[in-house]
Design a protein around this nucleic acid. Structure first.
Lengths: 145, 145
DNA sequence: ATCTCCACTTGCATTTTGCAAGTGCTTTGG
DNA sequence: CCAAAGCACTTGCAAAATGCAAGTGGAGAT
């Protein structure tokens, strides 16, 4: 990038992102989906932040409407539901990992080992690919059960 | 990263980040500070999203308390105030750019040129360094005026 | 001395959230 | 085949956060 022009258009994609991940609960749900492999209402509800059921339902609907999740019947139990990440949310993984690297550095009580940041800095592509593969494994196991 | 253990600690740094950037207004203020070089209350208030004055004051206080901004008198006019990014918020830049790459891809009305994502993908370190340098230039010009 | 600018603060109506309880459908156990 | 339990929400209501408009106090300019 040359040092010519100061771009003026940065605001817009950021505003778009703010509408999705600039919401605490959506952001945490994306973590659950993209890193923890959670797929059901029950699993999301069990996260330690204690989201209440009305907010959870609201955010799942929102994320589905935004094309971040797909809602499908649970192959293991027809009365149950699974929410799978779409390509759009999977593509958010690199950004999520970047955020985590930053948070790991500055959160004084982080539970993340220092090796995480080092690993991502050392081989971001590989780290991203590893999580992607893990999530694909989760979804394939689920869908074929 | 070996394919051994599925890490269980991811939640925590994400929760920390959610407490800061999981707020629409904080997130947009960070954009203004890190990409647009805005430094004053007036400039933040002028952003197109139209933050109201009480919320702006509240978030500036919050970001200062979180160590993301420092509040200092404006060298150009003693009765005015400048908010500068700290190292902590400057270190958030790579994550912010990653988010923007994602948003640029999926926001159908994005104003960002496709070249931005390509440029960041091609040379992330250089792109980050460019923004860092721009912001340092803004701050040095301000402080020495 | 007054006027203006600046960075907020205040009051109040509206919206969003959190919490607890309830609902309707499905599955499970006896 | 019926009762009980599980699941994915929905509803009602009090509390908190937000948005908007107006006001405040101090520094600088006229």
């Amino acid at each position: 990038m040359s040092s010519k022009a100061k771009p003026d258009w940065n605001g817009c994609p950021t505003r778009y992102a703010a509408g999705i991940v600039g919401d605490k609960w959506c952001f945490l749900l994306l973590r659950d989906v993209l890193l923890h492999g959670k797929r059901t209402y029950r699993e999301f509800h069990a996260s330690p932040e204690g989201i209440s059921t009305n907010i959870l339902a609201n955010r799942l609907t929102k994320l589905e409407a935004l094309g971040m999740l797909t809602r499908e019947p649970d192959p293991r139990k027809a009365s149950s539901v699974c929410y799978y990440p779409t390509q759009k949310s999977k593509d958010f993984l690199p950004a999520l990992l970047s955020i985590m690297v930053w948070a790991t550095r500055y959160d004084e009580v982080t539970e993340a080992p220092a090796s995480f940041a080092a690993s991502f800095a050392n081989d971001p592509t590989g780290t991203i690919a590893w999580y992607d593969a893990e999530m694909d494994r989760v979804d394939q196991a689920l869908r074929s059960s």
